[in-house]
Design a protein around this nucleic acid. Structure first.
Lengths: 249, 249
DNA sequence: GTGAGAGCTTGATAAGGATCAATTCGGACA
DNA sequence: TGTCCGAATTGATCCTTATCAAGCTCTCAC
């Protein structure tokens, strides 16, 4: 977009956090209104990625974290043997690359799941800034610790829960993330393919498919391709083990 | 120990990072010799925990990160339903509590696996210090991102690898961590019970036991209770999938 | 519109590991 | 030294989910 306006030469790719609708989800939420300029000074409006394009991969030298502005991203580790493990899905307002700070290269590969735009935060500048803005530093620590917790939660899901429980948990996670963005928590379209869901949850595609139809037959969800409607959120919550155990006790 | 010397009243529980044998593994490794005092100023020599004692649990208000000084610690998440998921094992020089920064309470429960001593870093002071020592801040980011990577690696292990591969990977991880501490990488005693291994790796205890005996019959390891000897490290590396795939290709 | 290919669904079979059950081992303690 | 209890091992069976195979559907290019 910005590139199609050749006349504005000054501050060519500077993003405006002030005007961004995601400022209450993204990094700006940790910063006082009048310090926001300092964040804007280091943010670069990244380019737009088409479906399937890499934002970075494991061979890219690490330089920046990225905030998703629109669209969605999947991150995955790819082993020497070529196996892929999807490690996360990122939606608008969420920050990618926290797992790579301190390394020379990115620790994972990030791929746009649809047409996606991102904001880029060069990490050297970000580190300088967090020294000056302790609230921002605190927020960074907070984000990173949450990333650790998310990953532990995933490990838990993978090692202790059935296919149905895993899928229910994913649907609920997506639901709450849509809600945070003031979008319908019960009626949304999945940004990722069944394949990615399967990989992320440690299942075979066929199993994912079967569980979707099972949920549908039980009237818990309605799914048509990537379009999903959660018909009975309570039932979904019952499916996740934490909840069912809680109720049994 | 310090408590048994009642005459020294000044700086009662101050740890000496200068003299600590783990200073090349622990936080001090990021700090210039002459800034080390500032870290020492905020470190508290924590008390010693007996086998089975909690260093903190999920109901403890979050205040500090802890470095293991001697002994070992397991961390786990415990769900409302009472289920446990072991999220990590921590050995001397390693930092616990990174997953909790920014929260009001600890995100996991930490339990001493044997008689264990820890150093305590109050996080408010640590955050203040990282503002003054950018190298320390950078190192904290680095540690946290590695924690994320470790957890992703675990997720990968759980979702893609067989029981044998998971156990081989754990043994190799322990081995390399012993090596870093200048201890034998092939001859060590497991700090954790079979039960904890099973839980961590998403297996049943029986499966862990069976794999141990299978490895033993194949002459890859020798195990007598918690005493383990790695007889054929190469073979173990072959077992982990990354390696075997690499060789097949 | 039509064909091709990827993505998704459904069915049948097989396998890896969980579960249940029964010993055995090992260390703490009287 | 014997006893007790939890941890570890071993065996038999069952279950969930992977795998293999086939058919369906949607989308996109031509």
């Amino acid at each position: 977009m910005a590139q199609s306006i050749p006349f504005r030469q000054a501050s060519p790719l500077k993003a405006s956090c002030h005007q961004c609708s995601l400022s209450n989800l993204c990094l700006p939420l940790a910063i006082e209104e009048n310090d926001l300029d300092r964040l804007e000074d280091i943010v670069q409006q990244g380019r737009i990625f088409n479906r399937g394009e890499h934002i970075f991969d494991q061979s890219t030298p690490f330089r920046s974290c990225f905030a998703v502005k629109s669209g969605s991203v999947k991150t995955s580790i790819i082993t020497e043997g070529g196996e892929e493990q999807v490690t996360g899905f990122f939606m608008p307002g969420e920050l990618i690359g926290l797992d790579s700070i301190g390394g020379s290269h990115y620790a994972c590969t990030a791929k746009a799941l649809e047409r996606t735009s991102v904001c880029e935060f060069p990490v050297d500048k970000l580190e300088d800034l967090t020294v000056k803005l302790p609230e921002l530093q605190h927020h960074m620590y907070h984000l990173m610790s949450q990333e650790i917790q998310n990953s532990h939660q995933l490990a838990m899901l993978l090692s202790k829960n059935t296919a149905e429980e895993r899928i229910a948990a994913l649907l609920l996670s997506l639901s709450s993330r849509f809600r945070r963005r003031r979008m319908s928590p019960t009626n949304f379209s999945l940004p990722m393919a069944r394949n990615d869901i399967a990989n992320f949850l440690g299942l075979a595609v066929e199993t994912v498919s079967r569980v979707f139809t099972r949920f549908q037959n039980q009237g818990i969800i309605k799914a048509r391709g990537r379009e999903v409607e959660l018909l009975d959120v309570e039932a979904l919550q019952m499916v996740t083990r934490e909840f069912s155990r809680q109720c049994n006790t």
